[in-house]
Write a protein that binds this DNA or RNA. Structure first.
Length: 280
DNA sequence: ACCCAGGAAATTC
DNA sequence: GAATTTCATGGG
């Protein structure tokens, strides 16, 4: 994989096993917006960029080679061979093979841990469209304004000094006090996110669940999408239905060390085929 | 008006 | 302890 830089833009090639819509708009990140020309505009790690993919050529506007090496190579998880992983987990179950074949361009992003934590706190008993709106208002109200007018995700330090009432403009409802609690525990060090990257999985879950508003599912999403624990297997309402109907008798452990990637194939496949779950 | 949304806390049994 | 209700908000 080569990265070349030309006037404020980089080109990465060849890029395989990536589809921007499947990856950026599949409910793991809430900050990417598809433009009319098919490209995606978003902010991560305090950088506002526009990303497009033409065959195996990927272009990132407003980035240089250093950004690629420090941020985007990791963000898009380019060190993992998803073709090989897809092949491996397709052998586990024929329906999983079908789900993986349906959206082979899904990758698990390496998002900022604190952002993943907050966005999945917001996600509870909520829908993706409204989650995006709340996250956008959170950034506009409390994130650093970037040079192009976009906003970074706010820091735990900034949010730790707020009250739930300060978050009223987000219209996040009962989740506001959860966000403040998360910010305070992360900023004070009572919850150590970086430790959760490498420690025992159950221990990591327990660490995150010290936060009010974080249960098993939000903890698993934080671990998968923010700390790249790809063995994590978050089970939401869609996954509950999918497991009951498509994988009866199976559990997270049956999906192996790449369970989180399998989960995302299954989640996306299920959402795109709601008719599978009609009638009881 | 009713039901649901990438759940978890609070209350009740 | 396990099962049920409640929690804000918005869209279908």
């Amino acid at each position: 994989m080569e990265c070349t830089e030309l006037n404020g833009k980089i080109k990465i090639s060849p890029v395989r096993d990536l589809d921007l819509a499947q990856t950026l708009d599949c409910g793991q990140s809430f900050r990417w917006i598809q433009q009319h020309d098919g490209s995606f505009k978003g902010v991560a790690y305090g950088k506002s960029v526009t990303v497009r993919l033409e065959n195996e050529d990927m272009y990132i506007e407003n980035a240089d080679k250093a950004d690629f090496e420090n941020i985007w190579y990791n963000y898009f998880d380019f060190m993992l061979d998803y073709g090989k992983i897809r092949e491996e987990i397709s052998a586990i179950h024929p329906v999983l093979r079908e789900a993986a074949r349906y959206a082979p361009g899904i990758r698990i992003l390496r998002q900022e841990p604190y952002e993943a934590l907050c966005t999945f706190i917001i996600s509870q008993n909520n829908n993706i469209k409204r989650i995006k709106g709340i996250v956008q208002r959170l950034c506009e109200n409390f994130g650093e304004k970037l040079s192009d007018g976009e906003f970074a995700f706010p820091t735990a330090e900034k949010m730790s000094k707020l009250t739930p009432d300060d978050l009223a403009p987000l219209r996040a409802g009962f989740r506001s006090r959860y966000l403040v609690d998360a910010a305070q525990k992360v900023y004070s060090g009572e919850v150590n996110l970086e430790k959760c990257r490498t420690c025992d999985y159950e221990q990591a879950r327990g660490e995150l669940m010290k936060i009010t508003g974080v249960g098993v599912k939000v903890a698993d999403c934080t671990l998968l999408f923010g700390l790249h624990r790809i063995e994590a297997f978050p089970v939401d309402v869609w996954m509950k239905r999918a497991m009951a109907k498509l994988f009866p008798g199976m559990t997270a452990e049956d999906f192996g060390e790449y369970a989180g990637i399998a989960q995302q194939y299954i989640f996306h496949y299920s959402r795109m085929h709601p008719e599978l779950f009609d009638e009881k």
